[in-house]
């Protein structure tokens, strides 16, 4: 079955790390630039994030995501560079437009923070199986029902996609034109929705019963099918990150 998860199988240090530590790193990447708003700190964080992505050997996979993010950031840079209130120092002119230093610096600040946060999330998403992440959250006390909902999204969407394909095949087999120009394809798409959605709803009922039969709602303590993914240095990493945040706070308050 196809998967909508972006998880990429690799054998690296980052992959071996437990999901919770990676969540800590996201917290770190979110908080540090807020605590220390200097653009230099943001740059350091971005470089750190990129290094982790390289170490995890998933940098290539981030390119489509980053190119989308860059597109949005580019508009931010243009708009802020040209029109931010408080723009004074002219950098250069092109045609009737003037690019200002203040707006540009502000936009770069925003850009680095966004890249920083995106790369922190990419580290988590690209190197962690969704089921591993959810399972470790459930171990930490997340309700197993919510955990199931999150995991099932990753299963149901590919399932709907493949059932859509089968139903299209069935319709084509019975003489419905589904290939060709946009109009034909639109016309073919609408009658698809009924069976796909109804089918998914019907599946939901069956799935609920199947879960119930296997004791989903049982009150007793649950065990796990998979062994917990243990990372030797997870405590060190987590405490290190907390310490880093504390140091940043102290720096901000004292200096």
């Amino acid at each position: 079955m196809r998967s909508i998860s972006l998880y990429t199988e690799r054998n690296t240090v980052i992959h071996a790390m437990d999901p919770i530590s990676k969540l800590f790193y996201i917290l770190f990447a979110l908080l540090i630039p807020i605590i220390l708003p200097s653009i230099k700190v943001s740059i350091v964080c971005v470089v750190l994030g990129l290094i982790f992505l390289l170490v995890a050997r998933v940098f290539k996979k981030t390119i489509p995501v980053f190119s989308f993010v860059f597109l949005i950031l580019l508009t931010v840079i243009i708009i802020q560079g040209l029109f931010r209130p408080g723009n004074q120092t002219t950098l250069f002119h092109f045609g009737p437009f003037t690019l200002y230093k203040e707006g540009l610096m502000f936009a770069f600040g925003v850009a680095f923070r966004v890249i920083n946060i995106v790369s922190a999330f990419m580290i988590l998403i690209l190197t962690t199986k969704p089921s591993d992440l959810v399972e470790s959250l459930v171990r930490k006390g997340l309700s197993s029902k919510i955990g199931y909902v999150i995991i099932s999204v990753f299963q149901i969407i590919p399932e709907m996609m493949s059932s859509m394909e089968t139903i299209t095949d069935a319709q084509r087999s019975r003489g419905m034109e589904t290939e060709g120009n946009l109009q034909t394809r639109m016309k073919a798409f609408l009658p698809l929705l009924g069976p796909v959605i109804l089918g998914s709803l019907a599946n939901t009922k069956e799935r609920a019963m199947a879960l119930e039969v296997r004791g989903f709602n049982s009150k007793g303590p649950k065990t796990y099918l998979l062994e917990e993914k243990k990372y030797r240095y997870s405590k060190v990493v987590q405490w290190g990150i907390l310490l880093g945040i504390a140091c940043a706070l102290a720096w901000r308050i004292l200096v």
Binding site: I167, D169, A170, Q171, S173, R174, G175, P195, G199
Partner: peptide
């Protein structure tokens, strides 16, 4: 030929009826 055109000469009954009924 598209599958739809071929439908006039060759018919296929799918294995799983739920895929076919709409």
């Amino acid at each position: 030929r598209t599958a739809a055109e071929l439908a006039k000469i060759i018919g296929l009954v799918f294995q799983n009826p739920n895929d076919q009924i709409f």
